[in-house]
Design a protein around this nucleic acid. Structure first.
Length: 426
RNA sequence: GGAGAGGUGGCUGAGUGGUCGAAAGCGCCGGACUCGAAAUCCGGUGUACGGUUCUCCGUACCGUGGGUUCGAAUCCCACCCUCUCCGCCA
């Protein structure tokens, strides 16, 4: 949510900045609502003040045993007017909030303008894609060839877009998550947190998934939702809290499953594990002072990159343009890993600075000694998406015979295993 | 799932219809005392919104949402949460 003062101060400028991210602000509607709000709020408060004063007089008069019928008559007429005014005020403020809650964040000044992913800017490229002297297979052929990946059975158990992994592949998946957690907790200074995988609507509203993106979520019949990312439960830890400034920054990491309905993406990435209803992710979250958030985004992105570097996976860093950023973000870097079978880079992490956008929705604040509470800034990023990292390892580390070499750094987590092959025992 | 108790300011905790945004204590801030500190004493110390403007004024907020009333922290209804005991269970 953006600060409403921004809209009051310079509506045209805000609308213009929002337009760069393909959002058309209905300025006429805002102005009308705001004018009505001001008028009704003023009148309501005046009447309330009058009623309060008269009621106090009644109390005082009764205490002295005086006759209060005149006062009662005077205040009696206020009731209905006041009630209808209060209802209208509630209605208008509700409308304003709804309008505000559906407006995306403003892009930072250093975000390139552009309508879609075509305008994203490559910031750097790390590692060189391996040259194969055979035709590289994709992760489905590799996993199924090794009899360690079974998408058909997953579809039988649940539906399409779920995976079943067995033996050494299931272990490799677990090893990846462990490796990532160990890196972030031991080398990057994050505290590991274990969080609920179901969250309420207030939490989703806080991080920006609601009210606009309900169709992407799985909702349970008790009103809770499956988390689409650990960002939701982890960031909401500070919802409605005032953090002492000396406790900032707070760096948290959590490994969770993520659930996405993938509504509206039926034709995309239908093959394999790239786009699933359920996938694991290690998520990095930072809660920082406003003046630190820009540097924190760079730092956090670097922490995610280290995972790719240690795994020896080629990748590039993309700075998303205004039109391609997520709803709540003011600046986003995507990390894209090289997938040989697709002969392209694919998103494996998204790191964003939300500035005060989520904090304002969550009322997540900090207090510098003696000062007023102030909204903090939130940053998060995948460090990394585990399923897609597994895909990248299978494809980048495959051998001509269909086996897959296990990256060095993961071997300690695999009981020393060096290769996934059909002759290997899981 | 059953029975009971309870949700009040940073914390503890009083308050069962009328100057209650809320006693008291603790904590914190400022001052006095002191060479300094402790103790003691005095004063201050919530959040948001609106108006006015750097000074105030108003409104709302005592788990949440409704209701009764001229007036609700206080009465009524619904819901949420916490605690204790029992049952069940990883």
């Amino acid at each position: 949510m953006l600060d409403i003062q921004l809209f009051r101060k310079d509506l045209a400028a805000v609308a213009q900045r929002l337009a760069t991210r393909n959002f058309q602000l209905d300025t006429a509607r805002f102005e009308a609502l705001e004018a009505e709000r001001k008028d009704i709020q003023t009148r309501t408060q005046e009447l309330q003040a009058k009623r309060n004063a008269l009621s106090k007089q009644i109390g005082a008069a009764k205490g002295k045993g005086e006759d209060v019928s005149a006062l009662m008559a005077e205040v009696g007429g206020l009731g209905d007017t006041l009630k209808s005014l209060e209802e209208r005020l509630d209605g208008i403020q509700g409308e304003l909030n709804e309008l505000l809650a559906a407006i995306p964040n403003l892009p930072r000044a250093d975000v390139p303008a552009g309508a879609d992913a075509e305008a994203n800017v490559e910031v750097r490229r790390v590692g060189t894609p391996r040259q194969f002297d055979f035709a590289p297979k994709d992760h489905v052929d590799l996993g199924e060839g090794l009899e360690l990946l079974d998408l058909a059975t997953a579809a039988k158990i649940a539906s399409s877009r779920f995976a079943l992994m067995r033996g050494a592949l299931a272990r490799l998946h677990r090893a990846l998550a462990q490796f990532m957690l160990d890196m972030h907790t031991q080398e990057h200074g994050y505290e590991e947190v274990y969080v609920p995988y179901l969250v309420n609507a207030d939490s989703l509203r806080g991080t920006g998934q609601l009210p606009k993106f309900e169709e992407d979520l799985f909702k349970l019949d008790n009103g809770l939702y499956l988390i689409p990312t650990a960002e939701v439960p982890v960031t909401n830890i500070v919802r409605d809290e005032i953090i002492p400034a000396e406790n900032l920054p707070i760096r948290l990491v959590s490994h969770t499953p993520c659930f996405r309905s993938e509504a509206g993406s039926y034709g995309r990435d239908t093959r394999g594990m790239i786009r699933q209803h359920q996938f694991d992710k290690v998520e990095l979250v930072q809660l920082v002072r406003p003046e630190d958030s820009n540097a924190a985004l760079e730092e956090l992105t670097g922490h995610a990159e280290v995972i790719l570097q240690r795994l020896g996976l080629p990748y590039r860093v993309m700075l998303l343009c205004t039109g391609d950023m997520g709803f709540a973000s003011s600046k986003t870097y995507d990390l894209e890993v090289w997938l040989p079978a697709q002969n392209t880079y694919r998103e494996i992490s998204s790191c964003s600075n939300f500035e005060a956008f989520q904090a304002r929705r969550m009322q997540a604040r900090f207090r510098a000694d003696k000062g007023k509470p102030e909204l903090l800034h939130t940053i998060n990023g995948s460090g990394l998406a585990v399923g897609r990292t597994l895909v990248a390892i299978l494809e980048n580390y495959q051998n001509a015979d269909g086996s897959v070499t296990i990256p060095e750094v993961l071997r300690p987590y695999m009981g020393g295993m060096e290769i996934l092959s059909t002759v290997q025992t899981g």
